[in-house]
């Protein structure tokens, strides 16, 4: 998959100005960058939540599943929240078990903790079938054990269905664990994109090099 080049502005302020991006199917692409670099805006535009300038069609003929940064729990039980996106209850059980939610299945989702809500939201998204999954910091609220379990679920989904995954993360370690490709954004512009091995270990761009230094990796 390839996106179209696009810009995104709020009033007179352009917050994203990007060339075409490669989002290969069957691969996880990590998007990294400092706060305000436009990572979440990129996710929201690709997911169709916000329109690019001039209503540019950024992704053509692609079913996109998007997990927002802040997970929303609908006013119903955890299980019903997950089953909102598919009726396969065996699959729902499997997902809940993978993330340790099985004991919370009947609990009202509004009473889950932040981490549990994030797990529920990931299970709910993974109930659906999409060509591209956009995950905006899916594990930010999770503990390490849950993070690793969630990463395994994402990896498995990508491998089994051949869908593309765009993973927005602040964690360089997570990007290194999961991604085959990486995109580095700086102040709304593309600084570097390519194989994760190169971008995350031997970046060519001085901005990416400085970012990795700041993160101490």
């Amino acid at each position: 998959m390839k996106t179209a080049a696009f810009t995104k502005s709020y009033g007179n302020r352009t917050v994203l100005r990007l060339p075409a991006l490669d989002l290969p199917e069957g691969m996880i692409t990590a998007v990294i960058g400092a706060n305000g670099s436009g990572k979440s805006t990129l996710a929201r535009v690709l997911a169709g939540i916000e329109a690019a300038d001039g209503n540019t069609t950024v992704l053509k003929d692609c079913s996109v599943g998007y997990l927002p940064q802040k997970s929303y729990a609908f006013r119903m039980s955890t299980r019903r929240n997950i089953l909102l996106n598919g009726e396969d209850s065996a699959r729902a059980e499997e997902l809940m078990q993978a993330l340790g939610l099985e004991d919370l299945a009947r609990q009202r989702a509004g009473k889950l903790s932040g981490g549990e809500t994030a797990k529920m939201a990931l299970c709910r998204l993974l109930m659906g079938t999409y060509r591209l999954l956009i995950l905006d910091e899916p594990t930010a609220a999770m503990d390490m054990e849950s993070t690793l379990a969630a990463e395994e679920l994402i990896r498995k989904r990508c491998r089994e269905t051949g869908c593309g995954v765009l993973l927005i993360t602040h964690s360089i370690q997570q990007a290194r664990r999961l991604a085959s490709r990486a995109i580095f954004l700086h102040r709304g512009e593309l600084a570097e994109q390519g194989d994760a091995e190169r971008v995350l270990y031997l970046p060519q761009d001085p901005l990416t090099q400085r970012f990795l230094e700041v993160y101490g990796v």
């Binding site: 998007y66 929303y72 909102l84 939201a121 659906g128």
Partner: peptide, 26 residues
């Protein structure tokens, strides 16, 4: 937040409206 989540899951306008109504009971 509801719209963003529901759009992200690919829900149509009808389902989004029903979910919003369900949130509005209280």
């Amino acid at each position: 937040a509801l719209r963003e989540t529901a759009l992200g899951l690919g829900f149509g306008r009808g389902k989004r409206f029903l979910l919003l109504l369900n949130e509005c009971v209280s």
